[in-house]
Design a protein around this nucleic acid. Sequence first.
DNA 1: TCAAAAATATGACAATTGTCATTTTTAAGC
DNA 2: GCTTAAAAATGACAATTGTCATATTTTTGA
Lengths: 239, 239
Amino acid sequence: MRATHDSAEPPLHCQFCRNRSDSAFHNLGTDELDTISRLKTCVSFRKGQVIMHEGARPQGVYCIHKGKAKLYKMGPEGKEQIIRFATNGDLIGYRSILSDEPISASITALVDTYACYIPKSSFFEVIEGNPKFSLNVLKLSCHELGEAGKMIASLAQKTVRERLAEILLILRATFGEDEEGFLDIKLTREEIANMVGTATESAIRLLSELKEEGRISTQGRRIKLEDRPGLRKIAAVFE
Amino acid sequence: MRATHDSAEPPLHCQFCRNRSDSAFHNLGTDELDTISRLKTCVSFRKGQVIMHEGARPQGVYCIHKGKAKLYKMGPEGKEQIIRFATNGDLIGYRSILSDEPISASITALVDTYACYIPKSSFFEVIEGNPKFSLNVLKLSCHELGEAGKMIASLAQKTVRERLAEILLILRATFGEDEEGFLDIKLTREEIANMVGTATESAIRLLSELKEEGRISTQGRRIKLEDRPGLRKIAAVFE
DNA sequence: TCAAAAATATGACAATTGTCATTTTTAAGC
DNA sequence: GCTTAAAAATGACAATTGTCATATTTTTGA
């Protein structure tokens, strides 16, 4: 099953990580990569397993090697609000460590997920000793802050239909498409609703509507975006 | 008017800034403060003036010395969505500079505002040469990212009434109270609505409701929180 | 492969919140 | 202090979205 593709397991040395060029570690030198490689441990999570719990104080950060995870807060009624996703090459848990605050959003593996765990002290050691890395993490957090601002504006002002169209585009940008052109992530309609910030039935209804309009097609739970310009127009999203 | 209080103008040297202990500059040494003091310029904005425009590429950051500002995005219908506020000691514009992205939220002075402007190149110079400062800014952006996550969850799942109660508490936490116990910021009801993410009339109606219930009182545009535990309960906010 | 559980889909109805119109009050600027 | 414009307040009605119920389909795990 997995054997025909690249290994799911991270390499022992970060130097050989295939995600590195797109990650916060992209411009670290040999010494720095040596340090991290020495200090990290490789871990895996089964689909559905909680990687980090909201409210906890993590003792380290994870760099996802292969997999997909959702970051979500529980609302007052016990419903999840998905804040964002993380996938290959993404650093998770750093926000809580750096702000010295509890974890504000739980993290759960959406598929079997392999990651490198870097203990807090090691993480600080590398941050404090490497201005380049520190700046990379700064860039990352500032980028995410901008994305959060966009989501705030959407949630506050757009209709559910508009937001759904936008979420579909975000899913594609985050996870890409599989060989058949379907979004390369399978989410329940409940999870989609939990990202849009609406009731499951509303999400289902509007997905049906978009299907009838020919803007998406589905096969089981899978979704294919058939009319991206149309979705972008509905979502009032401009590049 | 202003003369009976501390000067609105920033001191020439950051060493004498009264906001410093609570800002990203709190643990910088004399050398570092010298550098920033040498490179900064003092600027002021009239109430209502735009400090930074959404979409622009800023050439520097501001550290607010005295004043209040709102950060807001324009929605597709031309309505503002207030993302958050900034006040004395807050660094603004850094997100765009560090992520190398355009400004994602305009910044407008809510009252006459005095700030220190640090050019981009100087800002990077200090960031790259001072691990402590870099870490402070990291801490700041990570804290703001956590706050944004909270707002996302509220906007997605809470009713307008719940969100209004929460916003009132946030306003108090951000700006404090004046000598008479009113929130030390005067906002139009439209601005409050633009933070809650609702129509102005809805915000007005719910403020009236909270007034009738005795949870708040008003004098003109000013608002006093009369029952903070009650508001916290409505807002489903826990410390 | 099969059975059971979970998820999806749809309809009917309810609730929340938005829009529009109008009157009253407050703030701003001279 | 006064005038005017902007904002606040309120009511009526409309629209969007949520809840509840039920049937159908898909997924899961043995």
